[in-house]
Design a protein around this nucleic acid. Structure first.
Ligand code: FES
Ligand code: FES
Lengths: 141, 141
DNA sequence: ACTATACTTGACCAATTTAGTCAGGTATGT
DNA sequence: ACATACCTGACTAAATTGGTCAAGTATAGT
């Protein structure tokens, strides 16, 4: 069970963006340099974030990205959903009645994994970008 | 973030084993047939479970595997540890002072991922094989 | 109008991981 | 002896990951 870079970078980048968001749009180039993430890769990530209306883009010189919502309205769930970082614990199709092994009934561990999935998602539902900003500021003072 | 088959199968197989454990050792062949898991793959998994003393093996005809401990003493944590299904959320090396990007300080999301890791592990620490047996029996009655 | 900046899009790829298979072997109860 | 079932290690096809590369388009400032 591991987190992929896409999800990790998306959150890193958004925290960075939120911190410098006050005055001007923030360019991916700056984020790339500050956070050590490949610019080309960031572009892929931000195109997804934009599609889910987490950020807005401003083109041209002095352009960049800004948050579409307030930091406390952006939950990790939203970010992960945007970049397709999904939590997948069950093997079977959730809606189907069939089990993961192709049998007619759900397997002996199905409920467990489902519980686990809920447990993890509840974490992502609670955490907002604002929470991250706060805890980060505390560390810096 | 997804669960691998190795971890999933290990738990499936142990639940199966625990249910038929009362009288005789259980052969991997039986588990393979009941749970629809490749026999060769099961053998790899059980060699790891044995190394961590979660199961004992009995060779020869009528041989098979038995649990080394009581079901309530076997936590998911133990199983996952045995089969190298590890929860990895941070990118950096945990003990090192350096961040994931090679910089001298931990990145802006490090604490978040660390929290997440604890959150997930607490789930695995709580759940025992006995819990799974119980909830499974309830479903069958 | 020109140019530098920075977003936009889509194709492409190397490395790693996963989820097994395959081919042998060894121990043991009957 | 022989069938059963554990044991071991090598191997591999397919998927995923974590990017890179190339060729745009829009806009602000000069
Ligand atoms: S995970 Fe859903 S049936 Fe096995
Ligand atoms: S994850 Fe630990 S420093 Fe980034």
């Amino acid at each position: 069970m591991k987190l992929t870079s896409k999800g990790r970078y998306a959150v890193m980048a958004l925290v960075d963006l939120a911190r410098f968001n006050n005055i001007n749009p923030v360019s991916l180039r700056d984020i790339s340099l500050r956070q050590g993430i490949s610019l080309d890769y960031l572009e892929q990530i931000f195109s997804k974030l934009k599609k889910d209306q987490i950020v807005k883009s401003i083109r041209g010189t002095q352009g960049g990205y800004v948050l579409s919502k307030k930091p406390n309205e952006i939950k990790l769930t939203n970010i992960f959903h945007a970049v397709d970082e999904k939590v997948k614990t069950v093997k079977c199709k959730k809606d189907s009645k069939k089990g993961c092994n192709g049998k007619a009934t759900k397997c002996v561990t199905h409920n467990l994994w489902d519980e686990l999935e809920n447990h993890i998602n509840s974490f992502f539902d609670k955490k907002s970008l604002e929470d991250l900003l706060k805890s980060n500021n505390e560390n810096r003072i």
